[in-house]
């Protein structure tokens, strides 16, 4: 139980066809840690998140999420894929927020948030509705429950998406460039919700280009390039004083 909210990766490799996107990834994220991943596009940042959520499977290496082997069980000679039901159960403990929100357009904001607990966890509808109400309020969207995603702005949609993930009571939240598809003026409202979440002790892994957010909120920072973790350490330390030349070059471009 003490491993809840932790992520452990050892020697993870992942290729898409001939292209190897993750080469020897080693990670250790503690419970309650806020970890930001930065790096140029195509460096494998998003792929790491997608592996931790089971949207992609790793080719080799050890991946433990919440202290359990994720998506597989280990025997003497191999890792065997878990049955879909068990995998789905593990996934409910990891929330994912996408760059393009991916709210269900056929459901209202309220129904989107309730979809996880009601459809997957078979939670009591009244309870779930009450919870959805609270979650909407907590992301600053009280009263927007009856709106469909198409009626909401990008920032509002992303906040509903965060609430939808939170409704599953995950131990870990993954954010895949959550503000990249937003108008600059809407970025702040999403980051505010994320900061709030960070204060509550949620384990968060955030792939982002928002250096300001990383500096202010992150405990640790990972800089990735070409499938490797180039540098990892205290967020403020790396941002002000990067050791590796590649990191220095990247930060010079973006800061």
């Amino acid at each position: 139980m003490s491993n809840d909210g932790t992520i452990l990766a050892q020697k993870i490799r992942k290729s898409f066809g001939p292209k190897t996107v993750l080469k020897d990834i080693n990670l250790d994220i503690a419970s309650g840690e806020i970890c930001c991943i930065i790096g140029p596009s195509g460096s494998g940042k998003s792929t790491i998140l997608r592996c931790i959520n089971g949207l992609e499977t790793v080719d080799s290496g050890v991946l433990k999420v919440n202290g359990e082997d994720f998506g597989y069980y280990e025997t003497e000679n191999a890792y065997h894929a878990l049955p879909p039901k068990k995998l789905a159960e593990q996934r409910t403990r990891v929330g994912m927020v996408f760059q393009s929100f991916n709210l269900f357009p056929n459901m209202t904001a309220h129904e989107n948030i309730m979809s996880g607990p009601v459809l997957v966890k078979r939670a009591d509808k009244k309870e779930a509705a009450k919870r959805a109400h609270e979650l909407l309020a907590s992301v600053g969207l009280a009263g927007f429950g009856d709106y469909y995603p198409a009626q909401l702005s990008g920032g509002q949609q992303q906040r509903v998406a965060i609430a939808r993930s939170l409704a599953m009571d995950p131990e870990i939240m993954l954010f895949d460039e959550p503000t990249s598809a937003l108008d600059p003026e809407k970025v702040g409202e999403v980051l505010a919700v994320m900061k709030d979440l960070a204060k509550k002790g949620m384990t968060m892994v955030v792939v982002t280009h928002e250096m300001g957010f990383a500096r202010e909120v992150a405990d640790s920072l990972i800089f990735m390039d070409d499938g490797y973790i180039v540098e990892r350490g205290d967020a403020r330390e790396i941002l002000t004083n990067p050791k590796e030349t590649r990191t220095q070059a990247f930060l010079k471009q973006v800061l």
Partner: peptide
Amino acid sequence: GQIEAADSLGMSGAMKMRK
């Protein structure tokens, strides 16, 4: 993205299809 969102919520195949 819709299918990924449903997957990340842990929906089963039949549930994804229906909802």
